[in-house]
């Protein structure tokens, strides 16, 4: 059983590696310059997938948190926590890459735009989610508190988006959906999205596995006492 799991993980890692290499080649070499964005489009091949994973990962955190509070199965808590850990990395990546792109294209690092603001707040909520667990006096309390934070955060992020929308709009709208982007760019972006999504799934399953092993070790250690 374990060997079979390991084999599939190995295959997935290999596919992710190849996809990532193709995506990088596509982003840095194959993709031509865009007429408006110029070379800065190369940053977006990293930025858009990271932002996508940031949202997906948080969706999974919130959904598993609801299921955890409802079913009280630690499995859901482990999934939520692992997704939060991986998601925080991708949200950071989205913020950093977005900021670098903004600096080279708009000339400033940061502005209070709806998408920027809500991503930053999402990042802070991820942080609060992970911190409340590590500061909780007991593991089981931390899990419950974190689940509460995730649910409140999940409701809060869209409200932040709407609030800042009233105020400021600077982030370019999704050009891919409007079909304004040449197919060649869309293709490179799609490969990159696939590579990032697969990478997220691999990291997530590895983290879940690591957490389960950790719990097993803790239980063994307890029984030795």
């Amino acid at each position: 059983m374990k060997d079979k799991v390991n084999m599939w993980t190995g295959v997935a890692i290999l596919i992710a590696f190849v996809l990532m290499a193709v995506a990088l080649y596509g982003a840095l070499v194959f993709s031509p310059e865009e007429k408006q964005l110029g070379n800065t489009i190369r940053i977006l091949y990293v930025h858009v997938p990271s932002a996508w994973i940031a949202l997906v990962a948080f969706g999974i955190v919130s959904l598993s948190s609801v299921l955890f509070l409802w079913k009280r199965n630690l499995k859901w808590d482990t999934l939520a926590r692992s997704s939060a850990e991986v998601g925080l990395i991708f949200t950071s990546l989205a913020l950093i890459s977005g900021s670098i792109w903004a600096r080279s294209f708009w000339g400033w690092w940061w502005t209070w735009d709806p998408r920027l603001t809500s991503t930053l707040i999402l990042w802070l909520i991820y942080l609060a989610y992970l911190m409340v667990r590590s500061y909780a006096t007991e593991e089981s309390r931390g899990a419950r508190y974190a689940a509460v934070v995730a649910i409140i955060g999940f409701v809060d992020v869209p409200i932040i988006y709407l609030t800042t929308r009233l105020w400021n709009l600077a982030h370019p709208p999704p050009t891919v959906a409007r079909g304004a982007l040449d197919p060649i760019f869309v293709w490179v972006l799609m490969v990159s999205l696939a590579a990032f999504t697969l990478l997220y799934i691999i990291l997530l399953t590895r983290t879940v596995e690591q957490k389960n092993l950790q719990r097993e070790i803790d239980q063994l250690r307890q029984s030795l006492k």
Binding site: T117, I121, L124, I125, L127, A128, M131, V132, Y135, A136, T137, R141, Y145, V148, V149, I152, G153, D156, I159, I160, L162, T163, T164, W167
Partner: peptide
């Protein structure tokens, strides 16, 4: 309530409260 049950309650409340309160503060 959550922060009062953690080890670092003075710092935990702002960490939890401020991000969620952002829409109210802005508006």
């Amino acid at each position: 309530t959550i922060a009062a049950n953690t080890k670092a309650r003075e710092i935990m409340l702002p960490i939890l409260f401020i991000p969620v309160a952002v829409p109210v503060i802005i508006a």
